[in-house]
Design a protein around this nucleic acid. Structure first.
Lengths: 154, 154
DNA sequence: GATGAAAAATCCCTCCT
DNA sequence: AGGAGGGATTTTTCATC
């Protein structure tokens, strides 16, 4: 498995991160290659595992999910059992979009979305606070996304 | 502009969030519709603004960007000038993938990625700490992503 | 080994029922 | 909403450098 990727490969990765719905002709034009050469390179990049997948990005506010929070929380114990039970439960709550195990004082950071303050209260009281092993919760409201959906720097 | 979307529309949105590279035949099968009917619905959803775009998701670790941080920071003043200068600068730093204006004690939360500890030190010292108007910085390392790339609950 | 051009296979998208 | 058709696009083949 050859590891290095050249500047053209990086361009391809940059462009498909920004927009994966363009045709091979367009993509080829942008990177200075024919459609077939560009296609071959993209397939090779996929084959080598550089592309995790292709996804549609939805309009959150259009779906009524205009509130977003980062929730920091700690667990009552550091045992594997506690962590595993917590993580399993997290994965089953669709409003929790992300969950990070953190170094530092807070054990976890969650990113959650919801429709309004009432929905957040319900989400907080009935789901997050009841996650197994939760000791301390601190919620932070995102007022505005200054920068979002940014591409990875390749 | 008609607002309500039905259960089939929601299914379409769910599936294209998880994988936008499937054909209309596949997608139609999953939602219980013919390819042409499914195509019509998807185009209508795009037309009405439910789809913000289509993107490739890359493999971070494969690109050597295996470290991820959430950086909380406050600014020295609450003036519009300070905020604008800060936000403009943030948008120009590719390692900063996201930036949220927050309610609560910290003014902003950034999500950044980098290759290793050395790269983070450089990023922190030479870019983040020098952002205009920065008063206080607190960095949090994400040890592991328990849940990531989760679809919006539609 | 990688490229571009052209062929083959597939898919998108419109029209019609 | 489903099906069929034409047109575009993807994907493979092949000659060339």
């Amino acid at each position: 498995m050859k590891l290095p990727i050249d500047e053209i490969d990086r361009k391809i990765l940059r462009f498909i991160q920004a927009d994966s719905a363009q045709s091979m002709v367009e993509l080829g034009d942008r990177v200075g290659l024919s459609a077939s050469a560009c296609h071959r390179r993209l397939k090779a990049l996929e084959e080598r595992g550089f592309v995790a997948g292709y996804r549609a990005v939805l309009n959150r506010s259009k779906l009524g999910l205009s509130m977003q929070f980062f929730i920091e929380l700690s667990l009552t114990s550091q045992s594997d059992k506690t962590f595993e039970a917590f993580e399993r439960a997290v994965r089953d709550i669709p409003e929790i979009l992300e969950c990070h195990l953190m170094a530092g004082q807070s054990d976890y950071i969650l990113r959650v979305v919801c429709q309004d303050a009432a929905a957040f209260e319900r989400l907080h009281r009935e789901l997050v606070a009841r996650l197994p092993g939760v000791a301390r919760i601190h919620s932070n409201l995102s007022i505005r996304e200054v920068k979002e959906w940014s591409s990875l720097p390749v």
